[in-house]
Structures are given as structure tokens and as C-alpha cells.
Deep mutational scan, measured.
Amino acid sequence: MIINNLKLIREKKKISQSELAALLESSRQTINGIEKNKYNPSLQLALKIAYYLNTPLEDIFQWQ
């Protein structure tokens, strides 16, 4: 199971779900699903999230 700190990191950087979704060329619903652990992002999307949040991938997503 993958757990994530996306919501915590996103809020700390003062970025809304909609703003992050626009940067990622994704939907706000996708970001919401990832944050609620209802959806696991593809590797490509996970890497883009890490890039746009300027945060190491392993700080956002962790195996448990």
C-alpha cells in the first residue's frame, strides 16, 4: 500500500488542488483521489508532482 503526504506538503506550499492539477495537466478530482488514497498515481504523474512541489518523491509517497 502506498501512503502519501501530498495534502500536507501541498498545503504547506500554499498550493490549491486546482492549481496543482493545472500544473500537472490533470484534474482536481485526480489530486483529491490521490490525497485520499483512493487513487495511486502513475510513475509519470508521481514524478511530475514531486517536480512541481520541489520535493523528493520519497517524501511524498511511501510504501507501507
Rank of each mutant, 00 (worst) to 15 (best):
S16D: 04
R10C: 11
L43S: 06
A22W: 09
I2E: 04
Q17I: 14
L23T: 06
K13N: 12
Y39I: 15
N32K: 11
W63A: 01
L8I: 14
Y39A: 09
I34C: 04
Y39D: 05
S42E: 06
N54G: 10
Y51W: 10
I34H: 01
L6E: 06
E35R: 00
L53Q: 00
L6C: 09
K12T: 11
G33N: 15
Y51F: 14
S26D: 08
E19D: 11
L6Y: 00
N37C: 12
K48R: 12
T55C: 08
K12I: 10
S26M: 15
Y51L: 09
K38I: 14
Y52G: 03
E25H: 15
I31L: 07
K12S: 14
A50T: 03
L57G: 02
R10T: 03
L53C: 04
K14A: 09
N40M: 15
Q64R: 12
R28K: 14
E58I: 09
I34F: 02
F61E: 00
N37L: 07
I34M: 03
L47K: 12
I9D: 01
I15M: 15
L24G: 01
I15A: 02
M1C: 12
L43V: 10
K12H: 10
A22S: 12
L53K: 00
N4H: 03
I9C: 10
Q64V: 10
Q64C: 11
L23D: 06
Q64W: 07
E58N: 13
A21E: 01
S27Q: 05
I31M: 02
S42W: 03
I60Q: 03
N32L: 09
A21C: 05
E11Y: 06
L43Q: 08
E19P: 02
M1E: 03
S18F: 10
N54F: 06
S18T: 13
I34V: 05
R28S: 13
T30V: 15
N54K: 12
S18V: 12
P56R: 09
E19F: 09
K7N: 05
S26K: 10
L57Q: 02
K13M: 14
K38Q: 14
N37D: 07
N37V: 01
I60C: 03
E11C: 13
Q29E: 15
K48H: 05
I9K: 01
R28M: 13
K48V: 05
E35T: 02
I31E: 01
T30W: 09
L8Y: 12
E11K: 11
E35F: 03
E35N: 01
P41Y: 01
I2F: 11
Q44R: 13
E58L: 09
S18Y: 11
Q44K: 13
Q17M: 09
E19G: 10
N4P: 02
K7I: 09
L45Q: 07
A50F: 05
S42C: 07
S26Q: 11
K36N: 15
E25T: 10
K14F: 08
E58W: 11
L53G: 02
Q62N: 05
S27N: 14
A21S: 06
A46Q: 06
K12Q: 14
L43A: 06
P41T: 08
S26R: 10
I15E: 00
K13Q: 13
N54E: 15
S18Q: 13
N4F: 08
Q29C: 13
S16N: 05
Y39L: 15
K48Y: 05
L53R: 00
D59V: 08
S16R: 06
L20Q: 00
L8R: 13
Q62I: 11
L20C: 04
Y51S: 08
L47V: 12
Y52M: 10
Y52H: 13
N32D: 15
E25N: 15
R10S: 02
A21F: 00
Q44H: 12
N5K: 07
Y39S: 07
Q44F: 10
K13I: 07
K36Y: 07
Y39T: 11
L43P: 10
L20G: 00
P56K: 09
L20M: 05
E11A: 08
N40F: 13
W63Y: 06
R28G: 08
S26G: 06
L43D: 03
T55K: 03
Y51P: 00
S27C: 08
I31G: 01
K13C: 13
S16P: 05
K14Q: 12
W63C: 08
S16M: 05
K48W: 05
E35S: 02
P41Q: 02
E25W: 05
R10Y: 08
Q64F: 07
E11W: 06
I3T: 10
I60T: 01
N4M: 09
D59L: 13
L23H: 11
R28Q: 14
K38R: 13
L6H: 01
K38E: 15
N5D: 04
T55V: 12
K14I: 03
Q17L: 12
S42L: 03
T30M: 14
E19Q: 14
L57K: 01
K13G: 04
Q64G: 13
E11M: 11
G33A: 15
G33H: 13
A46D: 01
E19C: 13
K12D: 09
E58H: 13
L24R: 00
L53P: 00
S16Q: 04
P41H: 02
Q29N: 12
A50P: 00
I34K: 00
Q17S: 05
Q62P: 08
G33F: 13
K36V: 09
Q17V: 13
L20P: 00
P41C: 05
L24Y: 00
L23C: 11
T55G: 06
L8E: 15
T30Q: 10
Q62K: 11
L47N: 10
L8K: 14
I31Q: 01
T55F: 05
Y39P: 01
L20F: 05
N40V: 15
Q64D: 14
G33E: 15
R10A: 03
R28I: 15
L43G: 04
T55P: 04
L23W: 13
L47P: 00
T30H: 11
L24F: 02
G33R: 15
L6Q: 01
A50G: 03
Y51N: 08
L20V: 01
T30G: 02
M1Q: 05
I49A: 05
Q64P: 14
S26Y: 08
R10G: 03
A46K: 04
K36C: 14
M1A: 07
S42N: 08
S18C: 12
L24C: 15
P56F: 06
Y52P: 00
S26H: 09
L45W: 02
S26P: 01
Q44W: 10
E58R: 11
A46Y: 04
Y52A: 14
I49M: 06
P56S: 07
S27R: 08
P41V: 10
E58G: 12
N4W: 05
R10D: 03
S16Y: 03
Q17N: 04
L23E: 07
Q64H: 12
A50R: 02
T55D: 01
S42P: 13
I2Y: 11
E25Q: 15
S42F: 03
L23Q: 10
